[in-house]
Amino acid sequence: MSDPETPDPVVTQENRPAEAPELLRKKELLEGVVTRSGIRKRDAKPVVEALLAELGDALAAGRPMQLPGFGKLRVNRIKDSPASRVVVARIRQDMPPVPGGDAPDEPAPGQGGENSSKDRLANPDEER
């Protein structure tokens, strides 16, 4: 039994797992490229397939990537098994601009920039 002076714990927020978003497949990606670019599907398909192959090769080789619109990716580790390869990576994306807000021309001092330490991805080999 609890002490009369000690309040009983109260749940203030219930943690529920978020529903997983729908899986993005190549067909949907191709349709999005066609919609955004305005080019014909038959022209976009080989480009999308080549892009996916290049990204897959770079990922398999453990190459870091910096791709505007996608983000900055660093491979932390790769583990091969007989049936597959597991790649553990970290992706850092910029926050999307606020609708109706003006984006600053330059980051405020200490708020980022090309050589900012905030832009760096954590390296698992670095000590804290």
Rank of each mutant, 00 (worst) to 15 (best):
M1H: 11
M1D: 14
M1F: 13
S2P: 10
S2R: 11
S2E: 09
D3P: 03
P4F: 02
P4V: 05
E5K: 13
E5I: 09
E5L: 14
D8F: 11
P9A: 10
V10S: 05
V10C: 14
T12E: 15
Q13F: 14
E14I: 13
E14H: 11
R16C: 08
P17T: 10
A18V: 06
E19P: 08
L23R: 11
L24H: 04
L24E: 04
R25Y: 05
R25G: 08
R25H: 10
K27I: 04
K27C: 03
K27S: 06
L29E: 02
L30E: 01
E31F: 00
G32V: 04
V34S: 01
T35D: 12
T35W: 06
T35F: 05
R36K: 15
R36S: 13
S37A: 11
G38F: 03
G38H: 04
R40L: 03
R40C: 04
R42C: 02
D43P: 00
D43I: 02
A44T: 00
K45W: 00
P46F: 00
V47A: 03
V48L: 03
E49W: 00
E49T: 02
E49A: 00
A50M: 10
A50N: 08
L51C: 07
L52W: 03
E54R: 07
G56N: 10
G56D: 07
A58N: 09
A60D: 06
A61Y: 05
G62C: 04
G62A: 04
R63H: 13
M65D: 04
M65Q: 07
Q66H: 12
Q66S: 14
P68G: 10
P68R: 15
G69K: 05
G69P: 06
F70I: 13
F70V: 09
F70Q: 07
G71L: 01
K72T: 07
K72E: 04
K72G: 00
K72L: 02
K72C: 02
L73W: 02
R74H: 01
V75M: 01
N76Q: 08
N76P: 01
R77V: 00
R77P: 00
R77G: 00
I78A: 01
I78T: 02
K79A: 07
D80N: 09
D80Y: 09
D80K: 11
S81T: 13
P82I: 11
P82D: 13
S84M: 12
R85A: 03
R85D: 01
V86F: 10
V86S: 13
V88Y: 04
A89C: 06
A89W: 00
I91C: 03
R92V: 01
R92H: 02
Q93S: 05
D94K: 12
P96A: 13
P96E: 11
P97V: 07
P97N: 09
V98D: 14
V98R: 15
P99M: 11
P99R: 14
G100D: 14
G101A: 15
G101T: 14
A103E: 15
D105F: 13
E106F: 15
P107G: 08
P107H: 12
P107L: 09
P107D: 10
P107Y: 10
A108W: 15
P109K: 13
Q111A: 11
G112H: 06
G112Y: 07
G112A: 09
G113Y: 11
S116L: 10
S117W: 08
S117Q: 15
R120M: 07
R120T: 06
N123D: 09
P124C: 04
E127D: 15
R128L: 15
